[in-house]
Simulated scan of single mutants.
Amino acid sequence: MTGFSVELRGVGVTFDRPALQGVDLTLAPGVVHGLLGRNGSGKTTLLSLLAAFRRPTRGTVLVDGEDPFENERVLEGTCFVRESGDVMDDEKVSVNLDFVEGMRPAFDRAYAEDLLDQFEVPLSTKIGSLSRGQKSAVGASTGLAARAPLTILDEVYLGMDAPSRYRFYEALLRDYVEHPRTVVLSSHLIGELDRVLEQVTILHRGGVLLTDTADSLRERGSTFTGPRAVVDDVVADLAIDVLARTELGGTSQVTVVGHLDAQVLERVRRAGLEVGPVALQDLFVHLTDGRGEPGSVPTTTGKTTAAATAAATTTTTEEVDR
Rank of each mutant, 00 (worst) to 15 (best):
33 H>R: 13
23 V>I: 14
53 F>K: 09
60 T>V: 15
30 G>R: 10
50 L>M: 03
24 D>R: 06
19 A>D: 10
14 T>M: 05
13 V>F: 02
24 D>Q: 10
14 T>Y: 12
17 R>L: 09
49 L>A: 08
54 R>C: 12
23 V>R: 04
59 G>D: 01
29 P>F: 12
27 L>I: 14
24 D>C: 12
15 F>T: 08
48 S>R: 15
25 L>E: 08
20 L>A: 01
24 D>K: 09
43 K>D: 10
55 R>L: 01
59 G>W: 00
58 R>E: 13
42 G>H: 04
50 L>S: 05
52 A>V: 11
62 L>E: 07
36 L>I: 13
62 L>K: 04
56 P>D: 06
24 D>I: 10
49 L>N: 03
30 G>F: 10
27 L>P: 03
42 G>C: 09
29 P>N: 09
59 G>F: 04
50 L>V: 07
46 L>E: 03
51 A>F: 09
52 A>Y: 02
56 P>Y: 04
36 L>M: 11
31 V>R: 15
17 R>I: 03
45 T>I: 07
27 L>F: 13
47 L>A: 03
54 R>K: 11
43 K>R: 15
44 T>C: 09
32 V>N: 04
57 T>D: 03
49 L>H: 11
20 L>D: 00
34 G>R: 04
62 L>D: 00
53 F>D: 14
55 R>E: 07
49 L>C: 01
61 V>E: 01
50 L>Y: 01
28 A>L: 15
44 T>D: 06
37 G>A: 05
37 G>F: 01
45 T>G: 05
18 P>Q: 11
14 T>C: 03
43 K>N: 05
49 L>M: 11
56 P>T: 02
44 T>S: 15
40 G>A: 10
22 G>F: 04
43 K>S: 13
25 L>F: 14
45 T>N: 11
29 P>S: 15
14 T>P: 01
29 P>Q: 03
52 A>E: 04
34 G>W: 09
62 L>H: 02
58 R>Y: 00
62 L>N: 00
26 T>P: 02
59 G>V: 00
60 T>Y: 02
34 G>I: 08
29 P>M: 11
19 A>W: 11
48 S>G: 13
19 A>R: 02
25 L>V: 15
54 R>H: 15
36 L>A: 14
23 V>Q: 08
51 A>V: 06
19 A>H: 13
47 L>N: 05
40 G>L: 13
53 F>E: 10
36 L>S: 11
58 R>I: 00
39 N>G: 07
40 G>D: 07
31 V>I: 15
14 T>S: 06
61 V>G: 06
27 L>G: 07
44 T>W: 04
20 L>K: 00
48 S>Q: 15
49 L>E: 06
15 F>M: 07
60 T>C: 06
43 K>P: 02
41 S>W: 05
59 G>T: 06
24 D>V: 02
19 A>I: 11
